[in-house]
Design a protein around this nucleic acid. Structure first.
Lengths: 249, 249
DNA sequence: CGAAGTTTTGAGGACCTTCAAAAGTTGTGG
DNA sequence: CCACAACTTTTGAAGGTCCTCAAAACTTCG
């Protein structure tokens, strides 16, 4: 079954099960979750920093970001999300949103009550571990972004972000790692990279001139994966493709 | 009982229970964990990026950081840790360390087998939620650091980090939020802030000249909390002092 | 086709870096 | 308790990466 035909819970489950299969009972408990489904237009806030939380959210289709604002208007995007991502698992336990969740493309989002997720994690420990693992990988990605923001040059930083999105798009079967949808404007990319839009434009231009990337509309192409990986020191260890530790009996 | 007299597990438990008390059985299961205790001198690696994981670690006393390296020698500190912090809970589920764990001061670290932690989380769901919550707060701190690195000036960034450490030291009863131990060299501070040591020095000098901070040896003093908070837009929401959602019955 | 949004380019300036060295502090052994 | 080495902090000067401001070219969409 192609990902395009899956509904939201199935898409999220597919991501979770890529890391190790669940028992039939856990699987059907997850798929049996009561949930809502909402569609959002591009550039629309779904949750705002400071909002009390109620529901967890999974991204069925589209592109989202999580971002934080400064009083002076500065904005930092902390993560970018693609179909299948558990974009707001934190609301299961955190009572207030510490960041804003916003669409980039038109997106479809699944909502599940936070307390229900907690109950599910308790009743099916394998699901609880899968949620925890997802949070841990999330945190690992944030650490890598800190390295990106703090210690990589604008060009390397830009390249690294593109490679991560390629790698994740490939894992999620949304695109190939060297040719994947990337519907993010240079203005938003700037907020993800801690740069100005002007400088993002110049960094992309340079990467293009070097033959390291090609851009077609809302799509990113990496002609030579290893060359770009070498340029920006992309090592996917931090995405933990090995999956979680299995619990011995 | 003062924190100084607590052993490592008690210190970690105290941090977890600040967010909501556990049942007696969960508490004694946690305190009954088989564990090792190791002392490390300053500037010593405890775990290195890429190492296979086995044990989870809690910091009984001292100061640690989690950092990542670039092939060109660049280093980014992703987090700083003080007594009571669950500095390596991720090893319960992640099979490889994606970052290096290193002491700043001489430190005492408790080690608990990763699979044992998983088992404990399963047998006592309230502990499982506490671990997950801790990971979520961790991730929230990383997001704030991204904002710091990407969108705050050197001076604001420096001030913000100091305020966070003051706030957390206060919570952990290691110091007051306006007067707390801070045994981090400017060289290490530079790696946490994505700056050069020279510029860190100048930023600290400026903050001192403005009367926003005072430094005494291995100690940081914030004469006027609100003034500094205003300067760097420090809002502790992201540390989630409200604690986790309670699971309804 | 017009309006709004996005990308691209230019010019000048600022924040932060690099390189270098001096001053101050800490810790250790004699 | 001093001597000395190692580490840490501080300062200066010059330069580069990235920012600001401004406007034009291009694309998307109603």
């Amino acid at each position: 079954m192609s990902i395009a035909t899956l509904d939201g819970l199935e898409t999220a489950l597919a991501k979770l099960e890529r890391r190790g299969p669940f028992s039939n009972s856990a699987r059907s408990a997850f798929l049996g979750l009561q949930h809502g489904r909402r569609s959002y237009p591009p550039q629309r806030d779904i949750v705002r920093e400071g909002d009390p939380t109620k529901s967890c959210r999974f991204l069925q289709s589209g592109t989202l970001s999580r971002s934080k604002l400064l009083p002076n208007g500065g904005r930092q995007i902390a993560s970018l999300h693609i179909a299948g991502d558990l974009v707001d698992l934190s609301s299961a336990l955190l009572l207030f949103a510490d960041h804003t969740l916003r669409t980039h493309e038109a997106s479809v989002v699944i909502e599940v009550d936070g307390a229900t997720i907690l109950r599910l994690a308790q009743d099916y420990p394998e699901l609880g571990r899968a949620f925890w693992f997802d949070t841990l990988v999330d945190a690992s990605i944030f650490r890598e972004w800190s390295l990106n923001l703090g210690r990589r040059s604008a060009r390397e930083r830009t390249a690294h972000l593109l490679m991560e999105m390629g790698y994740r798009s490939d894992e999620a079967e949304i695109g190939g790692r060297c040719d994947f949808p990337f519907p993010v404007t240079q203005l938003d990319l700037a907020d993800a990279l801690g740069l100005t839009p002007v400088h993002v434009n110049r960094s992309l231009k340079w990467l293009r001139e070097q033959g390291l990337i090609r851009t077609s509309k809302r799509r990113m192409i990496i002609p030579d994966w290893d060359m770009l990986a070498d340029f920006c020191a992309f090592r996917p260890l931090y995405l933990h493709p090995e999956g979680p530790r299995a619990l011995p009996n």
